[in-house]
Design a protein around this nucleic acid. Structure first.
Length: 405
RNA sequence: GGGGAGAUUGCGGAGCGGUCAAACGCAACAGACUGUAAAUCUGUCGGCCAAGUGCCUUCGGAGGUUCGAAUCCUUCUCUCCCCA
């Protein structure tokens, strides 16, 4: 197999990348790979702590995909053992430890989703439990001996937690060591991770040296901000776009990102070419283009990537009808009504409000309408007559129909 | 091993015997304005009841004192700090 030239490879590798450390070593590795016609081993680890992959994860996965396209060997590590520790990076507290069963179940759904982006044939998947569960205590001690507490405490989050008098459990110190040891096991040439992973990635270099290996290159990718534009995209913060989400959801969520993120999303999570990227950037800055239109293009692009062109088209139409023309959506959940019910009861029963109190407050706050008419009376009675559309907030709709009994 | 401090409603953080479902800030939700963007302004922010000086659950867990406890006592669990 012929590899592209060093420059071509570096251009691809550096798109969107924050750090390549050290860059000259990477160039050397690439040179050697071309000379010996041998692919580099590219590693990225994933904690199967949450079962859904969202756009934030795809930043790294897509970089792996690019390496595959360049002809290199991608190894995805499922951190079944490390997940039981829980990565303390960027967390202010100890994560709950997961059971091995939970982890394995998550791992399966993870893999299904990986291959929406990665080429399955060209990907090796390894579980780090494969080697960790066989380790003797002696081996664990020698691994632990390769690193000092002082260096461990240099790490930002540990330092912060220590200073803030928050608990740090000993087992959390194992996380970076284990991740580093994974690189030893698979003889990684390059390890990819988010910027917050930098410390862990550097430890990988350190440990590889301890084990007499050539250290890996570390490549850090930015952490993608979520829908709120401030915090990292994450499932637990609820500000994410999942790659398995229905087309309309995906489109709508994309439209709600702040304008400042439009370019970043194009750069990090879509395939638009370098030329198009430059054009988008220019349009965002020229003051003539409505950022909304670029955002719509982003939304279409994403839906096309994870669904298809028709879905993108219809999601866009649905979005326009709903929010530009303020029509009601075509599809909405149906609530069968058997007998008269008060509106607050319907809202709670249909899952549109957490409690009757909350429903009442929504009504009093003017957030509820029935067939387009604002309802102000929390005791309003709905009768199972004609089908009616109940709207709560901006985007919760339910169609009330008489129950067929 | 010894001594000290602490655990409050999503988070931070007041409260230190009744007036506490618990100040304030953040987040969140709804409304106005918009481009389901941002910023700003307004309202809400434990649950239940046709809604009131109403009832129920909540201030780490379990007991106790008291007419009355987030507040006092005992004990347990967890955390942090200092000493060894």
């Amino acid at each position: 197999m012929a590899f592209p030239s060093i420059n071509e490879q570096m251009d691809v590798i550096k798109r969107g990348t924050v750090d390549v450390l050290p860059e000259d070593e990477l160039v050397k590795k690439l040179e050697r790979s071309i000379k010996e016609n041998k692919p580099l081993v590219i590693k990225q680890g994933f904690d199967p702590t949450a079962p859904d992959i969202h756009l934030g994860h795809t930043v790294g996965i897509r970089k792996l995909r690019q390496f595959q396209e360049l002809g290199h060997q991608v190894v995805v590590i499922i951190g079944d053992y490390t997940a039981m520790v829980g990565d303390p990076s960027d967390k202010k507290s100890t994560r709950p430890r997961l059971s091995h069963e939970q982890v394995m179940a998550h791992a399966q759904t993870y893999q299904d989703q990986f291959f929406k982006i990665l080429d399955k044939e060209k990907t090796r998947v390894r579980f780090n439990g494969d080697w960790f569960k066989k380790m003797t205590f002696e081996e664990i001690m020698s691994m632990a001996a390769s690193f000092t507490v002082a260096r461990m405490l240099e790490r930002d989050d540990f330092a912060r937690r220590y200073a803030a008098q928050l608990p740090i459990s000993i087992h959390e110190f194992f996380y970076p060591l284990m991740q580093g040891y994974d690189s030893v096991e698979i003889k990684a040439d390059v390890e990819l991770g988010a910027t917050e992973q930098k410390f862990n990635l550097v430890i990988g270099r350190h440990i590889q040296k301890e084990y007499g290996m050539e250290p890996q290159i570390i490549l850090t990718m930015p952490v993608l901000e979520g829908l709120d534009g401030k915090q990292r995209m994450s499932k637990s913060l609820g500000n994410y776009i999942g790659i398995d989400e229905p087309a309309n959801e995906m489109y709508g969520k994309t439209m709600s990102i702040p304008d400042e993120l439009i370019y970043r999303y194009f750069e990090l999570v879509t395939d638009v070419s370098a030329g198009e990227l430059a054009e988008i950037k220019a349009q965002l800055e020229d003051g003539h283009t409505n950022p909304r239109d670029l955002k719509a293009r982003l939304a279409r692009t994403l839906v096309r990537m994870y669904h298809n062109a028709e879905a993108a088209q219809s999601a866009e139409e649905a979005f326009r009808n709903l929010f530009v023309k303020k029509d009601i959506p075509d599809d909405m959940p149906v609530f069968p009504l058997k007998e008269d019910m008060r509106i607050v009861d319907v809202m709670t029963a249909a899952g549109m409000a957490e409690s009757k109190g909350a429903a009442r407050r929504l009504i009093q706050g003017g957030g509820v309408s029935l067939d387009g008419e604002k309802i102000n009376d929390p005791f309003y009675n709905i009768t199972p007559g004609d089908p009616r559309v109940l709207k709560v907030g901006k985007r919760k709709f339910v169609r009330i129909t008489p129950a067929l009994s």
